[in-house]
Design a protein around this nucleic acid. Structure first.
Lengths: 200, 200
DNA sequence: CACAAAACCGACCGGTCGTGCTATTCTCTG
DNA sequence: CAGAGAATAGCACGACCGGTCGGTTTTGTG
């Protein structure tokens, strides 16, 4: 049916935006239904369980992330430009221009599920491994293009790349450091220069 | 009275270890009482509200952090050695040798409260500002000692310092990367060398 | 050893949680 | 426009939530 799919999509989108603030466990069916102005049971009928809703929300977040961060960066030519685009898109994602200033949902979820086994955690881990692999792959291509040094460790690069983003979210959202974005940009520049082939 | 203080301390300690897994909101009075084999009302009598318990738990965590991380590093001579000790102690804290392999409670709490206003968040923010200032202060002293370059930005140094720890927790706990600690050590080395005065 | 205060307990409150089950309303299609 | 089937609502459930209260046990002390 068509109407049902539209409603379901609306539920998932609303749930995603709430989950970024309160966590996936913090989104309750009752409040979600109130916000959407439908009954709790009417909402529930679209999912067999709350976990199914959580998985749908996570999937939605992954799709959005790929669309807003990964794909735009991968249209850039392989190499340094793509790595830089990946970072810039990621930062823009943090600012929540699309997510609604609630920050990166994956970072909230990572903390929420790092000690909570289950299907949601499994899916989350899979997506985060993909993301790290995506960064590393971009770095490998930059090496192949001759933009990055040949002895660069792509996994190490991905580790430090993602570290900057996490520190940014922490500094910007929790401690409300006005220089957070400046610090993140400077940290990336240092990482980037270190990875690039020496100008000699 | 004496007996009550001991019980209260036991409650706070147990609550802290549970909070590192489930978050402070996830610790419920009933379960906590069951685990301690006391009644829920007997437990509750030690605090005027759940928020008061949460604040007590946070205070306990701060004390523990200072005792296990900050103080041991600050007995080292000011300068590069102290900065390095600070990092090493912090990493050891992550491994949870004292906290019981649940990772750093402050990182979990940061994600949990970055969108949840209240007294707990305020206290958390204060403690995290202190921690960042502590790192920056150690860097400033290293500059004064001639170990770090004079043009080093201490806030930038603290930003990247903390970034490594966050990425470590994320990599080690969520994605279960076996090389997480190696990556963290390498990242710190890069940060440290960049901050040090050039051998020239 | 008595006795007040502190510590603790069990029962209970209103509310909300996730989740079923049954009816009703809506929507697409023949 | 009628009827089938999807979409949604109403209602109730058992469990658990933070919190309250009156009473009982334990503890430190004069």
């Amino acid at each position: 049916m068509r109407k049902g799919d539209a409603t379901r999509q609306q539920i998932v989108e609303t749930a995603l935006s709430r989950a970024a603030e309160l966590g996936l466990e913090g989104v309750t069916l009752g409040r979600l239904a109130d916000e959407l102005q439908i009954s709790k049971s009417g909402l529930f009928a679209h999912f067999k369980s709350k976990e199914a809703l959580q998985l749908a929300v996570l999937e939605e977040a992954i799709e959005l992330f790929i669309e807003k961060v990964v794909r735009p960066a991968f249209v850039r030519p392989r190499g340094a430009a793509r790595v830089r685009a990946l970072f810039e898109r990621w930062i823009a994602w943090f600012r929540g221009e699309e997510a609604g200033d609630t920050g990166c949902p994956f970072l909230s979820l990572s903390a929420e599920y790092d000690d909570r086994p289950g299907a949601v955690r499994d899916a989350l881990v899979r997506s985060q491994r993909d993301w790290m692999a995506t960064i590393a792959r971009a770095a490998v291509l930059a090496v192949a293009e001759g933009h990055f040094r040949a002895d660069l460790d792509p996994a190490q690069f991905a580790f430090e790349f993602s570290a900057i983003g996490m520190s940014l979210q922490y500094a910007a959202k929790l401690v409300a450091d006005p220089n957070a974005y400046t610090h993140a940009a400077a940290a990336f520049e240092r990482l980037f220069v270190d990875a690039a082939v020496q100008p000699q």
